[in-house]
């Protein structure tokens, strides 16, 4: 959060409250405050698509607020009437009649002269996996497959630790460059990739997925993504060419062990 924006804004709103503003001004202040908060108050900045969505909702909410009971509505009617008719507001009225068209014109000018931006793309982050894949000629059922070494966790601690250590070596030889030392998707080369590498420490990535899903993603990589995950096959390599089945299961163990997360369990209808 950008406190340099948020704190003054909140203070300004509180200050305005003491001035007992008219309802119109108050609604406008809130609307502006919401926009400033969304646009400048949150770090890192929100994508404009989200700001648009949120502002639409907030605009609707503020409109409802102003019309939700008879008092407010008549207050709005009165303020509007005063604004339109009374002499003391005349400068404001004529002023806004000039300023708003100027803003419209300026905006049109800015749009015409601004640099074109490559269209934004939405991407399905967790596309549905195929029901099975062929891994080096062997069929692996993505719906049912489970990590063969996961059961060692309870049975044979030493062997399990061995597999995790194996996964660790694989990670630091292959994955760390993009996914980073903290597994936060901020490796040495992450700045040069789009889409950016997955952040495994985020609770919404591997913690949401079954190990077999990870196996699919690691084995088949970006080229193996289904159509729905446009914009394009991500840079993720298809590790099938380099890593064996056991190695992939090992590195999956390491991912969960390093981040301290648990894989989603297989859910099957009994």
């Amino acid at each position: 959060m950008n406190f340099w924006v948020v704190v003054p804004m909140v203070l300004a709103l509180i200050g305005l409250r003491f001035l007992k503003p008219g309802i119109l001004l108050w609604l406008a202040a809130w609307w502006g405050g919401c926009f400033i908060f969304l646009r400048f108050g949150i770090l890192p900045p929100l994508p404009s698509s989200i700001i648009g969505l949120f502002m639409a909702i907030l605009t609707a909410a503020l409109a409802l607020y102003g019309t939700a009971d008879a008092d407010k509505l008549s207050a709005i009617g009165k303020s509007l009437r005063a604004f339109l008719m009374e002499r003391r507001f005349a400068p404001w009225l004529w002023g806004s009649l000039v300023v708003i068209p100027l803003l419209v014109g300026f905006n049109a000018y800015r749009q015409a002269t601004s640099e074109a931006v490559a269209p934004a793309t939405g991407r399905t982050i967790h596309p549905a996996p195929p029901s099975e894949i062929t891994f080096r000629g062997k069929k692996i059922d993505i719906l049912k497959a489970s990590n063969p070494f996961r059961e060692l966790e309870g049975k044979d601690k030493a062997a399990f630790a061995g597999h995790v250590a194996g996964g660790r070596a694989i990670y630091y030889k292959n994955c760390v460059f993009c996914h980073g030392d903290n597994m936060e998707g901020d490796g040495l080369y992450s700045h040069g990739l789009d889409p950016q590498p997955a952040n495994f420490a985020d609770p919404t990535t591997i913690a949401m997925l079954q190990e077999s899903y990870l196996f699919w993603r690691i084995a088949k990589g970006g080229p193996g993504l289904p159509e729905e995950s446009a914009p394009w096959a991500s840079a993720m390599p298809a590790w099938e060419a380099t890593l064996g089945e056991d190695e992939i299961w090992d590195v999956i163990l390491f991912l969960y062990s390093f981040t301290g997360r648990k894989p989603r369990a297989q859910e099957r209808a009994e």
């Binding site: 806004s96 009649l97 000039v98 708003i100 068209p101 100027l102 419209v104 014109g105 300026f106 049109a108 000018y109 015409a112 002269t113």
Partner: peptide, 16 residues
């Protein structure tokens, strides 16, 4: 780009 922008501004002025 000034002309179309001015046209927009004028339209807004007229509507207002």
């Amino acid at each position: 780009p000034i002309l179309p922008a001015a046209a927009r501004a004028l339209a807004a002025l007229a509507a207002g």
